[in-house]
Amino acid sequence: MNNAADIVLVFLVLTNLMLLGLSRLGACIRTVALQGIALGLLPLLTKGGHMELHGTAFAIAIILLKGGVFPWMLMRTLREVNAQREIEPFIGYGKSLAVGTLILVVCIWLGSRLPLPEPVMSSLIVPVAFFTIMSGLFLIVSRRKALTQVLGYLVLENGIYAFGVALVDKQPLLVELGILLDIFVAIFVMGIAIFHINREFDHIDTDKLSGLRS
């Protein structure tokens, strides 16, 4: 049992559950930042210290981007759109937490049914990656504010990245860098889009946008 990696993985689960239960958008952004930092630490812990230069550099890039740049951009958007909290999500916070626990149990069962071809750093990584992906999806479908949905998208990507860490030796660095660049641009564009939605309609509630044509 790789203890340090396990602690980080459990921390990922906890940040996901926190996101499901938090209503303040600022706190949500900070939680996602923490999750990004933990995620950046993950590949460093897998190797047990001896790490090539480009791997370390990549981990540092991940930590800087996910723990620093994305939260900073989202915080700036938050200040501009002047929306402090998710008022009425489609699914309430208590229910979201309960659903999260249920998803977690399903993911752990799923993880036990999908053994990876070769031993990975921790048996937890597949279920946790699944759980992160699922809770990201759940955030996207259950919240009203565009900003929370962007956070859900980020969490979803974090889950995919965690899955990639499990196969870190197999995955070429270039692919990872490409994905990172993609989400960087996506967050950038989404921040601007949210700003424009807000300026046009004075709110960022996505469910009201379906009535645009009338």
């Binding site: 459990v10 689960v13 906890l14 559950l17 239960g21 916070y93 208590g94 937490l97 309960a98 999260g100 626990t101 977690l104």
Partner: peptide, 12 residues
């Protein structure tokens, strides 16, 4: 909600 959170931690 806080107490459900504690229960969730225990279940985890």
């Amino acid at each position: 909600q806080l107490l459900v959170g504690a229960t969730t931690l225990s279940i985890l």
